[in-house]
Write a protein that binds this DNA or RNA. Sequence first.
DNA 1: CTGTGTGAACCCATTCACAGCC
DNA 2: GGCTGTGAATGGGTTCACACAG
Lengths: 207, 207
Amino acid sequence: MRYHKIPDETVRRLPLYLRGLLFSSQDLQENISSRKLAEVLGVNPWQIRKDFSYFGGFGTPGVGYNVEKLTKQIKKILKLDIGHRATLVGVGNLGAAILAYPGFKIYGFDIAAVFDNNSKKIGQKIGDVTIEDVAKLPMLKGRQIDLGIIAVPRGSAQEIANILVDVGIKGILNFSPCRIDVSKKVKVITIDIAMDLARLPYYMPSS
Amino acid sequence: MRYHKIPDETVRRLPLYLRGLLFSSQDLQENISSRKLAEVLGVNPWQIRKDFSYFGGFGTPGVGYNVEKLTKQIKKILKLDIGHRATLVGVGNLGAAILAYPGFKIYGFDIAAVFDNNSKKIGQKIGDVTIEDVAKLPMLKGRQIDLGIIAVPRGSAQEIANILVDVGIKGILNFSPCRIDVSKKVKVITIDIAMDLARLPYYMPSS
DNA sequence: CTGTGTGAACCCATTCACAGCC
DNA sequence: GGCTGTGAATGGGTTCACACAG
């Protein structure tokens, strides 16, 4: 089954819904209504229903959505039902924070390889992974890693991306504040946290 | 002058344009065309022209946009022409990374106060700020800080937000993966980096 | 001839309203 | 009565085409 018709904006929200479901499942509720989920996440109920309608009826009128089934379905659509192994390149402050960030695990991600170019860091163990020399990055092929996370300075990002593509990575999360272009076959998502901060003052009262 | 009619999506892109201008200004080009800027950033030229058209003619037909003037104008609209002082709450891995992140400075942000609840960290100096006891957060009033950055565990985020609002903060950048609700007068932007990673597999070929 | 600025057309997403089901 | 699912309406953003300026 393909879900080609799910709008991008809906895909963008699915992880949010998933987060809501995963955290609310601690309440041991078997079902959850769109109104309840909307309340938890701070969005509109009809937006949620519309989004869910793109992949068919999982809700029961008068009752709501079965939390477990819906969770599984969303994971399947996002291809999170199979675990993903990622590699992190660059263990500066940001890289270290990413490595320690607990949020990845709940989506089934495992940062299985870590690289840096600083000889003082190479060989160090963080958690259960050992930092490897970035020069050995091209030898990543065959280690079943499909995702790359780039947390290196701007000037090196494209170069690292090229190597990642060469070794067969299929998706890149780029934390460097710059454009990266790669083969159309590889999806790149760039995050620049400063950009979000930069539009905050616009919405603040002029004081 | 008010810019009430600038669409939100355009506001979201303005920091991106600003980044492009700031970095390209190293080339010592006096003018830049929408095509050139689009190329650098990986977006459409007509999108850029349309966006710029919302705040009046800064371009010269046949030549392009004056980099300096345009930069100033965008900064003014985003209210980045006046500097902003921010406080960071939570100096874990993520907090430390934020503190060290150079990207904030180019937009004129200064992280002027830092708080944590870990007694081992309190009193430590990072860069040129000293970590203060989070219990003293309510005493922030009068220190000319208008922005708050939350990097604490999910359970404490709302509580910290409430205090920040009490001391008169006007905008919050929230890195905790949870909803925060505050007075409508305060703008909150929530960033959950795991959510972006979570939608990456969707776009990857099924292998 | 190059590149901006913008009305119009198009396309997509959000919102609404309500039929249908438990 | 409560809640889902969805066609229809609305609203907004993107894309286009082209008039106009240097």
